[in-house]
Amino acid sequence: MSYSVTLTGPGPWGFRLQGGKDFNMPLTISRITPGSKAAQSQLSQGDLVVAIDGVNTDTMTHLEAQNKIKSASYNLSLTLQKS
């Protein structure tokens, strides 16, 4: 079951990613910084990142996902799936 979260910026957003197409692993939330915008939302460590700002992550490399997140200036919309 997927869910959506919109973090209001600017960054830093307070989470780290792992995985990506180049690692043959789905993009997942690997760490959440305590007290951060991510920590105050529904994000959980281990959640799968399905889309970033409406763009499906199935074919994204780790770097492409990082760049997509960094390019979000004020709002960052994520679609996630609980692990």
Rank of each mutant, 00 (worst) to 15 (best):
L17R: 00
P12R: 05
S83N: 06
K68S: 10
A72L: 10
V5Q: 03
S73R: 14
K68M: 14
F23P: 05
Y74I: 12
L7P: 00
T33Q: 08
A38F: 01
S41P: 03
A65Q: 03
T28W: 07
I29P: 00
S44C: 14
G11Q: 08
E64Q: 08
T28Q: 14
K21C: 13
D47T: 04
T6R: 09
I32Q: 00
G9Y: 07
D22R: 04
S71C: 14
P12T: 05
F15M: 07
P34V: 07
D22N: 13
T59K: 11
A39W: 15
N56D: 14
T79P: 00
A39T: 05
Y74G: 15
E64Y: 06
S71V: 08
S36Q: 04
N24Y: 07
D58Q: 12
T6L: 10
V49A: 02
E64H: 06
A39V: 04
S83F: 12
K70H: 08
A38M: 02
R31T: 14
Q66S: 11
T33H: 15
Q18E: 14
V55C: 14
V49F: 01
V49N: 01
G35Q: 08
T28C: 08
L7Q: 00
K82F: 06
P34T: 09
K37E: 11
I52G: 01
T79F: 07
Q18F: 08
A51G: 11
G46L: 03
S4G: 06
G35D: 08
H62E: 08
Q42T: 15
M25F: 07
P34I: 06
E64N: 06
S30Q: 08
S36Y: 03
K37I: 11
L78Q: 00
H62L: 15
I69W: 02
S77Y: 09
G20D: 03
Q45K: 14
L17F: 07
L76W: 01
N24K: 12
L48T: 14
P12K: 07
M60Y: 07
G11H: 07
L27R: 01
I52C: 01
L78P: 00
N24G: 12
I32M: 05
M25Y: 07
Q40T: 11
L63V: 12
N24I: 05
T28M: 08
S83E: 10
S2V: 10
P34M: 07
T57W: 02
F23M: 11
D53T: 03
K82I: 15
A38Y: 02
V55P: 01
S83H: 12
G14S: 02
K37Q: 10
D53V: 01
P26I: 01
M60W: 06
G9R: 05
K21Q: 08
T79D: 11
A39K: 04
L80Q: 00
G19L: 01
T6C: 13
Y3F: 11
Q66F: 14
A65F: 03
Y3D: 05
K21A: 08
R16F: 14
A39M: 06
T61D: 06
N56W: 07
M60P: 00
T59H: 10
M25S: 15
S77D: 09
Q66C: 12
D22M: 04
W13G: 02
S30M: 09
S30P: 02
V50E: 11
V50A: 06
T28K: 15
S2L: 11
R16V: 13
S36E: 04
S41Y: 09
S73I: 09
Q81K: 13
V49R: 01
L27T: 06
E64T: 07
P26T: 03
W13K: 04
D22F: 04
A38N: 02
I32S: 02
L63W: 10
A65G: 04
G14V: 01
G54K: 06
D47L: 04
A51R: 09
N75M: 12
V50T: 10
L63M: 14
S30T: 11
D47S: 05
S44I: 07
S71Q: 15
L48F: 10
D47Q: 05
S36V: 02
I52Y: 00
L7C: 02
S2Y: 14
R16N: 12
Q42S: 13
L27E: 01
P10D: 12
N56T: 15
W13F: 13
Q18M: 14
I52D: 02
T33N: 09
E64C: 08
L7A: 00
A65S: 05
T6A: 07
V55D: 10
V5A: 05
G9N: 04
P12V: 04
Q45C: 10
G11A: 10
Y74T: 15
S4W: 06
W13S: 03
A51P: 00
D47E: 06
Q66A: 15
A39N: 08
D53Y: 03
L27H: 07
T57F: 01
T33Y: 13
S83K: 08
N56H: 10
Y74L: 14
L17P: 01
T28F: 07
F15W: 03
P26W: 02
S83Y: 09
A72H: 12
F15Y: 02
S71N: 13
N56F: 10
T8N: 06
L48Y: 07
T6Q: 08
Q40W: 07
P10I: 09
R31N: 13
L17H: 01
G35F: 07
M60Q: 03
Q81V: 15
Q40R: 13
W13D: 02
T59G: 12
V55L: 12
M1F: 14
Y3P: 03
P10W: 07
I32V: 07
R31F: 13
I29N: 01
T79A: 10
Q66D: 14
L27K: 02
A38L: 03
Q40C: 11
T57Y: 02
M25C: 11
Y3E: 04
L80N: 02
G19F: 01
Q42N: 11
T28L: 07
A65L: 05
I29M: 05
L78W: 00
S41K: 09
D53C: 06
D22T: 04
N75K: 15
H62A: 10
A72G: 12
Q45H: 07
